[in-house]
Write a protein that binds this DNA or RNA. Structure first.
Lengths: 112, 112
DNA sequence: CCATGTAAGTTCTTATTTGGAACTTACTGC
DNA sequence: GCAGTAAGTTCCAAATAAGAACTTACATGG
């Protein structure tokens, strides 16, 4: 069975993950919650390749989780913003954050 | 940057996802919460291939999220059970379940 | 008009992961 | 010895990801 076959699975967790469960997707959503909205911000912050960021953003927009809007007409420039639907991923990200803080403390001090 | 480089990332969400963010992992954890504990149960329920299930279980045991115990000595047979650490993924899975129920209603009736 | 810069992708090649199915091991029972 | 059970392992093909360069559409300055 393929991962993409999960979109109409009996289980809501599976249906959700079929949208956001590929690598880097949830980290892009994290960045949106942190206030980022530009393509290069996502690429720099997550560390994913530009192609993957592009592919993930397209998927998230198609799913109605992010909204792609132009913030400049000439030249055409876009930003990606969480929709209300997207805002509702907050509990999941908070849960992962709490888990990571408790169980995976940073072993060395963070550098800028 | 590779996905596996995230294990000592500044962000706890990233560190968490470096453990559980690969395809099928969270669905295996879902199955554990549902009471499943055997290898074939995970393979049948998730739909992932046996190789992927094996690889994911190994990773989860290494991370201390699941515990692999023998429930039979002859022949040697194993089951996988959530540790306390693993139990603490419940909020994340509940969040995805809630999101999926609200935003991705099943379009056709589920069959047995 | 040309060069440079910016932002957002797109393309191409290589490396890695996943999908699929068969196979292997260690037992039990007949 | 064969069939069955449970838990993996192996191999090959397909898909995805990593990495880096390239392209497009603008603006600006000389």
């Amino acid at each position: 069975m393929k991962w993409t076959d999960l979109d109409d699975n009996w289980c809501p967790v599976a249906r959700t993950l079929s949208l956001v469960g590929d690598r880097w997707t949830l980290l892009i959503l994290r960045d949106c919650f942190l206030g980022m909205s530009r393509f290069d911000q996502f690429a720099d912050s997550t560390g994913a390749t530009r192609h993957v960021v592009s592919s993930r953003l397209k998927r998230l927009v198609e799913a109605g989780i992010l909204e792609k809007t132009a913030y400049s007409e000439r030249p055409k420039r876009y930003e990606y913003v969480l929709t209300e639907k997207g805002q509702e991923f907050a509990p999941a990200l908070i849960a992962f954050k709490d888990w990571g803080k408790k169980h995976l403390p940073v072993r060395r001090p963070t550098q800028a």
